[in-house]
Design a protein around this nucleic acid. Sequence first.
DNA 1: TGTACATCAGTGAACGCGCGTTCACTGATGTAC
DNA 2: TGTACATCAGTGAACGCGCGTTCACTGATGTAC
Lengths: 231, 231
Amino acid sequence: MTRSPRTAHGLDLEAAIRAVAWRQIAELGAPALSLRGIARELGITAPAIYNYFPRRDDLVTALIIEAYTSFGDSQIAARDSLPPDDLLGRLDAIGVAYRAWAITHPQRYQLIFEASIPGYDAPKMQIMPTGAHAMSALLSVVEALRQAGRLRVTAFPRVSSEHEATLALWKRYGGEVADLTIGLSVYIWSCVHGLVSLEIAGNLPPFGPNGDELYRYGLASLAQQLFTEAP
Amino acid sequence: MTRSPRTAHGLDLEAAIRAVAWRQIAELGAPALSLRGIARELGITAPAIYNYFPRRDDLVTALIIEAYTSFGDSQIAARDSLPPDDLLGRLDAIGVAYRAWAITHPQRYQLIFEASIPGYDAPKMQIMPTGAHAMSALLSVVEALRQAGRLRVTAFPRVSSEHEATLALWKRYGGEVADLTIGLSVYIWSCVHGLVSLEIAGNLPPFGPNGDELYRYGLASLAQQLFTEAP
DNA sequence: TGTACATCAGTGAACGCGCGTTCACTGATGTAC
DNA sequence: TGTACATCAGTGAACGCGCGTTCACTGATGTAC
């Protein structure tokens, strides 16, 4: 039997570190994250953290992966909340869940998709799989729509062949999908991201409560523009 | 006659400080900006900067305003590069210029629309006019399309009345425009921002050189979806 | 034209701070006999 | 059941660093007479 970790704080300290890190990111933003600040709030000394995360960057990487996983899980749960043949329903559910997650965890969202932490450079090969997992819900629905012959679009900007390696990785984690599916998904993602990130940053100036309404309009437009109704 | 400023460095030092600040932001990102770093690169001591910017935040504010102005000027120049009656042409030119500016100055773009500098909070009332100026090109073209009766959309998410003060400010700087115009403009801006910001952040994974193509597709879709051709 | 003076941009030293990381240590825990 | 021992999570002190900001100063500049 393996030695159980110390539980001086009544909890698994590794999880407690991550929890406090999220709290501080929520309060001050990701770039202000600091090991000493976390230790202070936990009532431990800073070097103690090194037993769990050998370097500060390792903590950041763990947080990014955790955020991607949480985000991806919510995407997949949204997709699976509707029957597999209701593809536009699933697409809409994914879209609604996207904004809901982002608004609930704005700093996590920014950590993943925007914020650069000074001095941190992400180990792409480590994070990529989780990122691809997060995108797999959208990819799978778009691919299903494609296979059902329900795309309005046929000529779409092609994926550049220079990036075949990256592409292959995406396909591996997103399930086998056509290039066209990836292109469409990225396009949908871009528009959705634009609406959400402006709202989170407080740049959707006077929309306030109607950010919701604008977002629903955006989702409906995309669906109508790209896909046909079920036959 | 007012005393001319010292020109120990052969140039106006205030401008030199801003120039070096931009260089460092481009290199390390906005959150890593530091007065001491700027002074080091200029070969002066840090306190000298205080003759031009009483606090670090004042420098940041000046940079944000400078970026907005540069961005807004490029938007307006793009609009005016085509005759006033070619409204869809103007809209497209604005869109193309938007991405071009953002790709040329990615860190400036992020400074304005995304990046939060730890410990800095923007004096909104100071920055707002410049921001509104930057949006005025888009607003004016959408408003002209509306007045020409060329909107496909009539029911559009309304601006929430809670924010009338902000709205009034926007209108003041953007010229007199209808609520519907503001709503449509924000929507267009969101989609464009989504495409651009993902591309800048390196999250448009395998599109690479075709980011351009995807973007043009997005612009064309928006125009077709929202506006009718000239009669 | 020459001298005395006021201005004020930039200096250099110092302040207190927080950061990531290292290191030898300690002392409670679980294990082996 | 009792004792000796190994483990290793967390401590406390210290490192070197960079930061924003303050302060008394200096010395070149431009002005007034």
